[in-house]
Nucleic acid binder design. Structure first.
Lengths: 206, 206, 206, 206
DNA sequence: CATGAATGAGTCTTCATTCAT
DNA sequence: CATGAATGAAGACTCATTCAT
């Protein structure tokens, strides 16, 4: 029974003070999410930690989900920026190089705030507007698709949609699984190497 | 603040009647999970749909989490059986063949009850005993690792742990992402083909 | 809203087996009452510990309160017996001697099962038929009144009802308060001495 | 298995409105306790009678026990004040006079809200923080001990701890038992007289 | 008589949200 | 705009008791 809940921030703070309030709420939310998990993160707790009255909180966000949604967006944007920037930097480099850089960028993106990322992925219920989490992947997929287009003549797969899909999700899955289950992998040269190899062979094997 | 909650079934039904009760509870839970999601699946709702009193529910399960945990175990067992059986069948076949079969088996395992699988993966918070969701992947990884051992001399990667990790999670991620975002892929020969190619090249390229 | 609840044992067990069952239930109840307190002592727990099915328990006792009431009666009877027997023994002795013995007997009565006694006094809600607890005091008062009658010409107070009331409750209160708050008093000669003095002076002071 | 339950009031009301709420809750609790007893006094019933939402109740008290504990404290404070004030008044009077006044003060203290007192003493299980009930007696004992110190040279018992213990508990027990079983005693000059005599003789005989 | 499965009213408690001040 | 008191639906869970087998 997917309740339809307003999840867009209620208003764009125009004054300095407001922006601080919103910031405080988001920071507090992230903190509590990480420390206590999604379920026990109540709006009252968030308001308290943010040093804001519960009334004010609802002045800026129409619901708990709206706060979390905003948080997700912010976090996602940071991750995407990292990947996008790196991809731009190496767009002219040969496939081997740029692909390796892409892998590295993804690992780094995951490292921005792994704890928050984990909670966002594992605990936030992906119903209603909160399926925003999945949106990151869509954006990453788009980024990669654009990258593949540029390299079109150096790679074998012709169905770029499919190839981008495979690259994006493979990257995401392996890095995320490593972050959760085998954190050692992430500081391990071999892991990045192996993932690069996996993707490189897929793209260009004779 | 991970609450520790009893999740082991409370009582072993001794009479036929009670076995039916337990079954009804699990079926009802699956149904509600699929229809309404994890969060709104309350024990009262489950009991009602199961045609069982809330008291009976708590006679057999000490908590909501315990029910879901049992459900996860059952579902996981089914999925693993499918993969395991298939892997046994094709263990003697050459890499190309058996790998393709593995991919197919995984797709089929995902098709056992895709809706339930989706909820279990996406909505059930992976805290406490509910992180059992992750355990499937561990078991699948182990299965694949054993398979790779047998093929050791036909494949290139030497670190079998890492290779199994990569295979398992790549498979899981791509199939799952496809099931969610691009269901067309799953009835699409090309998708299975492409995934097989991805993994095959990784394993044996020169 | 004092519910009226049946508290008399449902039937007098005539066969040996039945008597054992009843005994087991009472023993289990006492044990659980002591270990876990009144509130968490459920009939199911009692039945389980007694090695008896919950159905059988209700064959012999119509309610939880009935079990506790029986337990209280048994316990009270034991306490009264101790006091009664001692009083009989020393009925011919002079006031000084017999009074001291009375005090000692009361202390000993309290020592029969202090833990059970404590729970019975402190936790069992004295509503409904359960005000049985108070009945002990009434019986003790009667006992003491009879004793005072025999000593009528050696004592000063003329209102024997009042005097018996005072003796009985003073004894009960001091011993009980000591048992709870100052257990050291109970193994302390001085305490018994002082209580005896208190009552003796009251009874015979010039 | 003494559960540890928060019993300190949750939040200090800052506005006038909330002070009224807290007051209403306490009044309602006292009323229900008296009318229906401890066991059936549920938080929902209390909130309803207080004309307050259950949510508000939990805003100020973390549990049923906390409400009752607060009630006990308030009631105890009132009783103690009465006794303390009287004792101060008569501290210079001779033993005979002041002791009689002490007895009277105790009777009066018991008359503040005898029904509430009865419930508090008889039905509230003395576990957890609820053993505050006993604390009154400790405070009264301390009061009496201080009184005895002042009279030290007029009395015979040397162990003032023991003597205070005996006085306090004898008083409490007799008054309480009278209130319960023989209410006539309390309006009866003879009763107060007899109790005074009992204690006076104990303190100063020869 | 014994068994134990089933019952469900009732308990405590939380938390997103509103609204008077 | 800020505050925080108030709300109450809803959830998890217990336990005395009944009754079919």
């Amino acid at each position: 029974m997917p309740r339809s809940i307003r999840t867009k921030p209620r208003k764009h703070p125009k004054q300095e003070r407001s922006r601080e309030t919103v910031e405080a709420i988001l920071t507090a939310t992230a903190h509590i999410l990480i420390k206590e998990g999604y379920d026990t993160a109540s709006t009252n707790k968030i308001a308290e930690r943010a040093g804001v009255s519960i009334g004010s909180l609802y002045q800026y966000f129409p619901s708990k989900e709206a706060i979390v949604a905003t948080l997700i967006e912010h976090h996602a944007q940071k991750m995407i920026s990292v990947i996008e920037a790196r991809l731009e930097l190496v767009s002219d480099a040969p496939l081997e190089i740029s692909l390796r850089e892409l892998v590295k960028a993804c690992v780094q993106a995951n490292a921005i705030n792994p704890n928050l990322h984990k909670v966002l992925i594992e605990q936030v219920p992906r119903v209603g507007q909160l399926e925003k989490v999945t949106e990151v992947e869509k954006q990453v997929t788009a980024l990669i698709r654009r990258y593949l287009e540029e390299k079109r003549d150096q790679i074998q797969p012709q169905n770029l949609d499919l190839a981008a899909f495979i690259l994006a999700h493979t990257l995401e899955a392996l890095i995320h699984a490593a972050a959760l289950g085998e954190p050692a992998f992430l500081v391990n040269e071999q892991f990045e190497q192996e993932v690069t190899t996996l993707l490189l062979r897929y793209l260009k094997c004779n």
